[in-house]
Amino acid sequence: MNKSPDGKPNKYDALVVLVVLALAAALGARVWFAPKSPAAELVVSVGNTECERIPFDDTEREYTNNGYTVHLAVTPDGAWVDHADCPTQDCVRTGVISRPGQSIVCLPARIVIAVEGAEESGWDAIAG
């Protein structure tokens, strides 16, 4: 068994420490300066399939499915359905969504507009 020359720290140990710290710094820099994935975006699904991803910029969209049309307004602060021709108007009444997990659903049209965030939401489902 080779014992270390003596139990006192020496300059080679300092080298190991430097390497570890450099690694920490490099990883830290990567996390800070990495191109940020889109913070949050809107995912529009028609029927069962995802049809479009919209970032939170000033824009508007219109989707038609199942005989109903839904008009979506988007701003950097949130998105909402400003008009739709479905009978129940739940989608219009939902109001503004902006946070990951929130969604606007138009049942008759089978259209779902959900906010997907960069981080995992931390839960498997929302009850209530």
Binding site: N2, S4, G7, P9, N10, Y12, D13, V16, V20
Partner: peptide, 19 residues
């Protein structure tokens, strides 16, 4: 692995191990 490097004291090996 670090122990192979004879110049390293127990401190170096230990820091490497902890990392």
């Amino acid at each position: 692995a670090l122990r192979r490097w004879e110049k390293l004291s127990v401190y170096g090996v230990s820091v490497g191990g902890a990392a």
